[in-house]
């Protein structure tokens, strides 16, 4: 199957993150798929327009978010496959084991008190835990400032 550039870039990004728990740069993606870094950087922009990727503000060759993965450490670490990934929010913290189809432990905390609040995904489901999730931004505005959302 022949893939278009954007799809090849997307798959290279997600495969790299799944393998290494780190987001690749445009140069690394270019090396992986045999494309020019400028072409990959342009694909980053198009993937952002499709809401599949968020380049680092001010650094278009770096990845801040490839949902559910974060390109930088966050308050939502996800431990699975012997690695520590980072998610962008509570939703994405569960999204990582969903995307990887793996069990996972999420050593998170109450956003106000800082009390440890560990979530776990086991055998394809979230283990019940006493907690609630608060959405501060309505769906129509999530991508106005997706990093805040």
């Amino acid at each position: 199957m022949s893939l278009d550039l954007d799809t090849s870039v997307k798959l290279a990004i997600y495969t790299t993150i799944a393998e290494t728990a780190a987001a690749p740069t445009a140069v690394a993606v270019a090396q992986r798929i045999g494309a020019a870094p400028q072409q990959v950087e342009a694909a980053f922009t198009r993937l952002y327009e499709k809401r599949l990727l968020v380049p680092e503000p001010g650094h278009p060759s770096r990845i801040r978010m490839a949902p559910p993965f974060s390109g930088v450490p966050t308050a939502f670490p996800v431990e699975t496959r012997g690695k520590r990934y980072y998610a962008n929010c509570a939703w994405d913290a569960l999204g990582i084991p969903a995307a990887l189809h793996e069990d996972a432990v999420i050593p998170a905390a109450d956003a106000f008190t800082g009390e440890r609040l560990t979530l776990e995904v086991k055998a394809g489901r979230a283990v019940p835990q006493e907690c609630v999730i608060h959405f501060a931004v309505p769906a129509a505005r999530w991508w106005e400032d997706i990093i805040y959302t």
Binding site: M1, T7, K10, P68, A98, I133, P138
Partner: peptide
């Protein structure tokens, strides 16, 4: 604003991301 349960969040995560590592994902 609205609160959701862990069970609802897990359902959203699966629907949203289960095929994210595939070529067809969007």
């Amino acid at each position: 604003r609205p609160l959701i349960t862990l069970g609802q969040l897990w359902q959203l995560a699966v629907i949203w991301y289960a095929n994210r590592l595939t070529a067809e994902s969007r």
